[in-house]
Simulated assay, not measured.
Amino acid sequence: MKRRKCLAAGWTAVVVWVAQATAAPPAAPPVSKIAPAADLVTQLDGYIEDLEESVEDEAEYNDSKDKLVKDASTLALIAVALGLHDEENKYRRAAPGLLEAAKKVAAAETYAQAKAAVAALKAALASQGDPSTLSWANKNASMPALMKAVPLVNTRIKRYMRRFSRYANRVASYSAVLAVIGQGSMPNASDTEKPNEVDKWYAFCAEMRDAAAALNVACHAEDEAAAEKAMAALQKSCDACHEVFHEEEL
């Protein structure tokens, strides 16, 4: 009898763990509450240019391999955001093609593959797909690549925050990227070191998204005090997440 009770308890624990690890992400807010379409269009165009530079020649590719994966993964989420956006934008219908093309760039293993994939990505800017096929519930990009991309974007934000009155628009644009990464990383909970902490992962992603969105709003309002407050909240959310999921990065 005791053995049966232990087995039953064990199976219950497994069922609970699986349920936690596979729980669907919470519903996303309208994308306009995450980031303005105009900022995301600016960033997508910028990432395309950066990726083209990364495959300009084989030497540049060899120096930029890691960055290329980060940039392509980030662009994938920007494409999803533009496809799902409730504000009209020029890349809404191109978004599905851009997402798939960005995935191929990130997966490239040789210079030739990367060069061809980036060319296909640029061509996808003119594609006409069905944005209703996109979903925030999908794993649209590599979680490790996204987490490595965050410090790069954050460094740029901090640099431009030092001259806020001059570069508020740039802070706004980069904060839009962080907000999208926060939202788009939610489905990757199972890829973390603690997949059973899925509720915490969702909460931290939402905190990052909302703090970055608040920073974006403050920048567009040219409110430096509000921007500083949002930056502090953003840093706090990152530190709290690392304490649970990636303590060695603190």
Rank of each mutant, 00 (worst) to 15 (best):
242 H>Y: 09
118 V>P: 10
9 A>R: 12
150 V>C: 09
214 A>E: 15
103 K>V: 07
111 Y>R: 05
132 S>K: 14
87 E>L: 02
129 G>Q: 02
81 A>Y: 05
123 A>K: 12
236 K>I: 04
176 A>T: 03
184 G>M: 03
208 M>I: 09
80 V>C: 00
163 R>H: 15
5 K>V: 12
11 W>N: 06
207 E>T: 02
46 G>E: 08
167 Y>D: 15
20 Q>L: 10
128 Q>N: 13
69 V>F: 03
228 E>A: 10
202 Y>Q: 07
67 K>P: 03
45 D>G: 04
244 V>T: 07
11 W>R: 14
237 S>C: 06
138 N>D: 15
228 E>L: 08
115 K>F: 10
146 L>R: 08
179 A>E: 04
220 H>Y: 04
12 T>D: 13
110 T>V: 15
62 N>D: 12
237 S>N: 10
187 P>D: 00
175 S>I: 04
26 P>R: 06
61 Y>E: 06
227 A>H: 01
34 I>P: 01
115 K>L: 09
38 A>V: 11
62 N>H: 12
175 S>T: 11
104 K>V: 07
24 A>P: 04
184 G>Y: 06
246 H>D: 14
10 G>L: 10
68 L>K: 09
128 Q>A: 12
100 E>C: 02
117 A>R: 01
225 A>M: 09
243 E>F: 02
193 E>P: 01
196 N>K: 02
180 V>E: 00
238 C>M: 12
142 S>P: 04
111 Y>V: 05
172 A>K: 06
176 A>K: 00
67 K>M: 11
7 L>H: 11
7 L>M: 12
53 E>P: 02
178 L>M: 12
93 R>F: 07
197 E>L: 12
211 A>K: 04
97 G>R: 00
197 E>P: 00
34 I>R: 02
72 A>Y: 00
213 A>S: 15
223 D>T: 10
178 L>R: 02
151 P>D: 08
143 M>F: 14
240 A>R: 09
165 S>M: 07
9 A>E: 12
139 K>N: 06
87 E>W: 03
100 E>K: 09
129 G>S: 03
192 T>S: 14
239 D>Q: 15
